[in-house]
Design a protein around this nucleic acid. Sequence first.
DNA 1: AAATGAACCTGTTTGC
DNA 2: TGCAAACAGGTTCATT
Length: 273
Amino acid sequence: MPELPEVEVVCRGLNPLLKGYRIERVELMHHQLRYPLPSYFVSLLPGLTFKEVKRRAKYILFHFDVDFLVVWHLGMTGQFHLLDSREPKARHEHVRIDLSGGKSLCYRDARRFGYAGVIAADKLNQHPWFNRLGPEPLSDAFSADTLFARSRGRNTPIKTLLMNNEVVVGVGNIYASESLFRSGIHPARASGRISLKRMSLLVEAIKAVLSEAIEAGGSTISDFVKADGKPGYFAHQFRVYGREGERCYQCGKGIRRIVQSGRSSFYCPFCQR
DNA sequence: AAATGAACCTGTTTGC
DNA sequence: TGCAAACAGGTTCATT
């Protein structure tokens, strides 16, 4: 499911729904996600009151009325649902967090690539999950100048560079392809051979695509955490992703697919150089 | 150091 | 129809 926009939508959706609620009980059905879930979740978390749900990169940060936070990554298929506590356990539901007020925060993850842990609030940035992360793409810290500087002397295809979390966080496989199309850059172009001018177009495209996707998800936030399990949004219009063989909306030629670092990239061979 | 590929796991779609 | 291969939105680890 999640790239940065999806995680942002989940956080914005959960924040008002969880704020002020107390954890009554935690049940682990399956400990082995990407990493083992800390079994002390069961004893440590009950009694805590949710203060705020925030995001850094693709991590969900649950803040409480204490000096540590619960950090959760959804992997490829992780989902949170806020359900009535009497709801029977769903397939692939691995964690259930019962809240005051009769609702439960349920974590489902078919592939179990997700992971979670507890981290001291003042040591978050030293933690191995966080200490090498690049800037947030929607912040001023991510600019044409910084991306240009990071790309000099590198032969890596630009698409691979964009998906490197040490360069910029949150740009996943879909939005990497989409932003390269919008800026007219071929995904296989060597990162070090892109001018500052074109890098500027790329950075603006990334910010625009991610912002639009968050907006599109924003209108259906309530659906995301309802019982039906529907994803946050379908509304976003992909211009190249998943459109191999179909016509480019700009020039009418066929969209192509190539594999880079084991991931599919989609592009228009005419519009992107 | 940088680049590539494999690994983690399950479900769904595609192709013979 | 049945079965196997390919593929899926992420990240880390090992190997060139």
